[in-house]
Simulated assay, not measured.
Amino acid sequence: MSKATTAALTAGSANAVKLFVAALAATGAYAGVTAYDAARSAPRPEQAITLQAREVPITSQPAAVAPGAISVTAKSGGPGCDRVYLARTVVVNPDPAQTVLYRWQLSRWSPYTKRWSVYLVDHSGFGAARRTVSWQARVADNPGWYRVEFAVQGQKTIRSDRFQVSC
């Protein structure tokens, strides 16, 4: 063999050995990381935990309401004088094949005019024989006496008892 051929074989063998060593190192590093992850994921010893609970009655659940009556419940109190009230009633549709339309109205008593004035209004409807309907009215920074009025198209208006919003 010539010197050039021997040098080429030697250089090629050296590169092959370097690549082989690098491959072994990479394989060893991968095996080490896998073993480390497996050791970290070993289950920890079990610990007994005692949970305690107590029953709390639901007091904010609105009471059942009958047709022709309105139930008004204070739902929440926000910061300052910000209150939300939930009004509910039952509507009986005389003709379930037709849509029944209705209107909610929150009225406020004016001590100056000695009359109830409209504060909020909402309209809606449904098509069924009977349904319990509800409405949320928000009163913000306006203390006074209020009442909820409910009117079904073609029927007389029903009114809730008055209630006071105070801050």
Rank of each mutant, 00 (worst) to 15 (best):
T10Y: 06
A39Y: 10
T10N: 05
A29N: 08
N93W: 00
Y30F: 12
W109E: 04
F20S: 13
I58E: 11
A66G: 06
R115V: 05
P96N: 08
R115T: 03
R130I: 01
P96E: 01
A129T: 02
A23G: 09
W116G: 03
S124I: 02
R131S: 06
P94F: 04
A151C: 14
V148G: 00
D95G: 00
A137N: 03
V165Q: 07
H123F: 02
E55T: 09
L19V: 04
Q136I: 05
A129F: 03
L24H: 05
K114D: 14
L19T: 02
S107T: 09
A14Q: 08
I158S: 00
S107D: 15
A16H: 06
C81Y: 03
K75Y: 06
R83V: 12
C167D: 06
Y30N: 11
A8N: 06
T27Q: 05
R108F: 10
M1I: 09
K114W: 09
R162K: 06
A16R: 15
Q164S: 14
G78N: 01
A29V: 10
P43W: 02
Q155V: 02
F163Y: 01
D122R: 14
I158F: 00
A66V: 09
S117T: 13
A8V: 06
N142S: 14
D141N: 15
F163L: 00
L24V: 04
A63Y: 08
L86S: 11
R130M: 13
L86F: 04
A29L: 07
A69E: 01
S160N: 02
D161H: 00
A22L: 11
P67Y: 03
V100I: 12
L24N: 07
H123K: 03
W145M: 09
F20T: 04
G80P: 04
L106W: 14
T132K: 09
P57F: 12
A140C: 10
A8H: 10
L101N: 15
T157Y: 11
S60L: 11
V21F: 04
F163K: 00
V84K: 13
G32D: 10
S76E: 08
Y85M: 01
A31R: 12
P57R: 11
V92H: 07
S107Q: 13
R147K: 13
D141H: 13
L19M: 12
S71H: 12
S2P: 04
P143R: 02
V118N: 08
S124W: 07
V165R: 01
A23H: 01
L51R: 11
V56Y: 12
Y119H: 14
A22W: 07
P111G: 07
A35C: 08
V139H: 04
Y146G: 00
G125C: 10
V90L: 10
R44K: 07
A26L: 15
S160W: 00
A31S: 14
C167F: 14
T157R: 07
L51E: 12
A140D: 10
